[in-house]
Each structure stands twice: as C-alpha cells, then as structure tokens.
Design a protein around this nucleic acid. Structure first.
Lengths: 257, 257
DNA sequence: CAAATAGTGTCTTTTAGACATTATTAA
DNA sequence: TTAATAATGTCTAAAAGACACTATTTG
C-alpha cells in the first residue's frame, strides 16, 4: 500500500464492515513465561492487541484467522471467541486522533475518518508456538512484539481489560479441554508440561497429583527417549496422543487442578 | 412512528451502528416448561429471537437491556452475553427482502436498505419471570409470543442456532452459579426448584441428592410455612438467601448434577 | 559423593452416586 | 384407608488432596 492507497483507506471503508472489528489476544509460551503479542499503532506511545477489520465477504472467525495469519505467518490456529466489547467510549484515546497520527506518521487522515467511529470488538484468543511465529507488522504499526502478561506496557483503549478477560477465559478453558499442543514442541517432558500449566494458571501444582491426573486422561504418551540435560537425572520425553487429544477438544476432558 | 418515519428508518440508519446488532434469547419458565420469547418480523412466516440495533450513544449491554425492556417491560434483567455470530450469509433469507416485506406490510423499503446488510449479532440470554412479562411488540412485528424451546417454530436466519447456543451457555452457567431468583416466585417449594433444574438441564435429578447439594450451598432458606395444596402432604416453602445468592453470582457456586 | 532435578506411591478426606422408606394431608 | 406427593439417611465407590522418599545423571 503506498501513501495514497493508505490515505484512501482512511477515507473509505468500502471493503470492510463498519462499527465492528476483531481483536486477537495471541498468547505464546516461552521460558516459563506466558507472553502476549502486542503492537504499537502509528508509533503512538500505547500498545494494543493485534486486530483488524472484517471484510464484507468473510465471517468473523475468518477475519480473526486472516488477521492472526498476517501478524504471525501461522495458519490453522485454534482461535477461540470469548467475548465482545462495545461502548461509545472504548476507542476514545487522547493519543488516537487524526491530528496526532498525522504528526507522527505524516498521513493525512480526515478528522471524521471511519477508523475513529464507535467499534464493537469481537475478541478471540489463541495459543501459538512462540518460536515458530514470524512477526510481521503492518505498515500502520511501529512495533509488534511479545510482552509477558505479567508486565504489560501502557495499553490503549480497553485492551488491558481484553487481555484480562482473555486470560480468565483461557483459565476456564484449561479446566475442561486439553491444551499444550500448540505451545510445546512435538516431544516434551513432564516437567515442561507441568510448568506450562503452572504458568497459565499462575499457581503451583503438586507434581505427583499433576502427573497422575494428566496420565489418567491418556492424552500424552511416554516415549522411550530422554531429553539430554546435563548435571542431573534426564527426564523422559512424551508426545501428545493426537487422537485422544482431538477427542478431548470435542467432548471435553476434566482436568481440574 | 408513523409510516413516513418508519420508511425513513429503513433509508437512514444515522442513530444506529451499522453491521452490528444485539439479539436477546429471553427464557421464561412456566408449568415445567422452558420457553423462549420469539417474534415474527413483518408478518413473514418465520420467527426470530428478540433483538435490535445499537444506538451510537449506548454500550452493547445497554442496547440489550433497552431492547429487552421494550419487549417485556422488565428492567434490571440479568443479561448474559454468550457469543457473537457473524458471517456474510447469516441474514440472507428468501423471505427477508425489500420486495417481500413491501408486499406484506406496504412499507416502501429501498432494496439496498442498511437493514439487509451483513450484520454481526452480539447475542445475550436472560431468564425472566414468565408471569410478570408484559409482551409488547414493535410495529415491525406481527406477533411476539412464548414458544417452548422443545417445539420451536420455523426460525429465520441462524436464530435456531443462536437459541441452541444460548441453551448450551445456560446449562454451563447453571453448574457454576446460582439460578432461579428471576424464575421462581419469592416463596417456592423444593419440588418447584427441583423441577426448574430438571427442566433447564432436560434430565431427571435424584431428589435426595438434589436437595442435599442445594441445601449445602446455603442459597435457600426453609420457612416455617407450607404451600396449601390439597390431596397430599403439603410442601414447605423456601426463599433465597439473597446474600449468599449474590455472593454465589460473584464468586461462583459449584452445583454439578 | 555432592548437587540437581526426575520420578513415583500411600493414606486420608471429601464428594458423588445409588438407592427405599416413612410422613402428611384431603377425600 | 387410600391416593398422592413430600421428606429424608445410609452405604459405597471414586476422586481430590496432602505428603516424602528414592532414582539418575554429571562433575
């Protein structure tokens, strides 16, 4: 998109739905930390979750997948719609004005551009493999990077609330469905998946009871290999039993910790 | 609204958000049956749940409450947002066209009226006292009445799916939060609340275990009165312990049956 | 053999679930 | 005394939760 095309974009929304958009809270797990992918629109000083407008030819789920793909390069993400946010004040921010954006970017944006309208946000969250994500920012973003959910930067609009609610939904989800397939390597150890659960739930889980319950579901299978780690006893590797895992996604697996 | 005002409404959406609306699945409980309030737009032959457009000055929750109040006369309803629905096909229906509506109603509606646009629906459900609802239909509806959820009429758009998903969400909700305050009279008997749970969950619940668990939560209190019913042993009356009930709404009460 | 972490079993308490008899009222 | 429905307790099985020692590797 060149500058003229970009400016046309702000004047004319003809390809997109008005007043409604999607936002994706993209979670990644890395080194015992839960992170979320944030972007900085127009080099403003606040951050937002990744999101985008809905094309007139696509469903809201398709829009969420398309937007997530643009930022991460990943397809086939498991996107879970968890809540919609809408009130006249939610996209008002003193940094998000035509004047300010023009100053920072040089774009000539009409004061009454549709992008400043009341937008209802249909919010999704997803879990992705941190290491496989190839972050691609759009021309409208200054930065796009991972942030630990426990140390978020200053957020624009109601996006801090959106992340909080996404986390709540994720923690509810984890009690009823298997998780981890998108977050761990193909082969992983019990301490690794144990850590993942502890990180997402933000509380310690007794290792004996955790292992007992997880193995009882049958969603993971022990391999005849160990991870090579020096200095102490090497842990066994496991992999997901994809059949049981997918069945659990459909019909539910109680894993209350 | 006179006819001119109505026709202006179809041409000009200026007070409302475009491409996004709210739909309310209003559940009522009556005589051991769970019912849902449906309306018949424009005297067409299909039914929809109650819904409406969002004003530019209100939040989506306020819109849902306003629309529900218009139909039922009730305020302070507990409206629970459970899912949003959006795809380009969802509001296409061969009965829902300018031509057909003009034939049935006499309104002169432009073929390209905004009401035929792609609309994302933010869906809520609520539980109300069947007997206290004073149904008020809008001028755009031929009928508005209760239907048993087990015997729905022919539904327009994706509204049958919306009701199914609302029921799913309600049944999930009932396992984690107290319910019934809006559905029963102030004083009620154990068999009555037992029946309510059986109806919503659509399965029989052992009366001894049901009573044991429900009483253990402390959300209901036994009164020193009995309901006068002739021909057999009269049941004791109970009322909700509003304090415990409200606390349960906030922090959750596990009542898994 | 010391350091570091992996791996595992038992006991207790709580909860869920199955199940049948007695109580009260009006006619 | 019969018909109708209300009220209630016990036993068993399963699950949750607390808890601590042994195993394996490297340096």
């Amino acid at each position: 998109m060149d500058t003229n095309a970009a400016e046309d974009f702000f004047k004319n929304s003809s390809n997109f739905l008005l007043n409604v958009a999607v936002d994706n809270v993209i979670f990644g797990y890395h080194e015992k930390e839960l992170k979320v992918l944030l972007q900085q629109p127009f080099a403003l000083d606040k951050w937002t979750v990744t999101g985008g407008y809905i094309q007139k030819t696509e469903s809201i789920a398709e829009a969420a997948a398309r937007v997530a793909h643009m930022r991460t390069g990943l397809t086939g993400l498991f996107l879970e719609q968890f809540q919609s946010f809408g009130n006249p004040q939610r996209v008002k921010d003193n940094g998000f004005t035509a004047k300010h954006i023009a100053e920072v970017t040089g774009y000539d944006i009409p004061e009454n551009s549709w992008i400043f309208d009341y937008f209802v946000s249909i919010a999704f969250y997803t879990l992705t493999e941190f290491s496989k994500v190839k972050i691609t920012k759009s021309e409208f973003e200054a930065e796009c990077q991972w942030w630990p959910v426990s140390e978020l930067p200053l957020m624009m609009f109601d996006h801090e609330l959106i992340i909080k609610e996404a986390l709540k939904a994720l923690r509810l989800h984890i009690a009823h469905y298997p998780i981890g397939y998108e977050l761990l390597e193909e082969k992983f150890t019990l301490p690794e998946i144990h850590n993942l659960y502890e990180t997402i739930l933000a509380k310690p889980l007794d290792d004996r009871n955790f292992t007992k319950k997880l193995l009882a579901t049958g969603i993971i299978t022990k391999l005849n290999e160990k991870r090579q780690i020096s200095g102490h006893r090497p842990p066994y590797l496991y992999k997901f039993n994809k059949e049981k895992y997918d069945e659990g996604l459909k019909s539910g697996v109680e894993l209350v910790f």
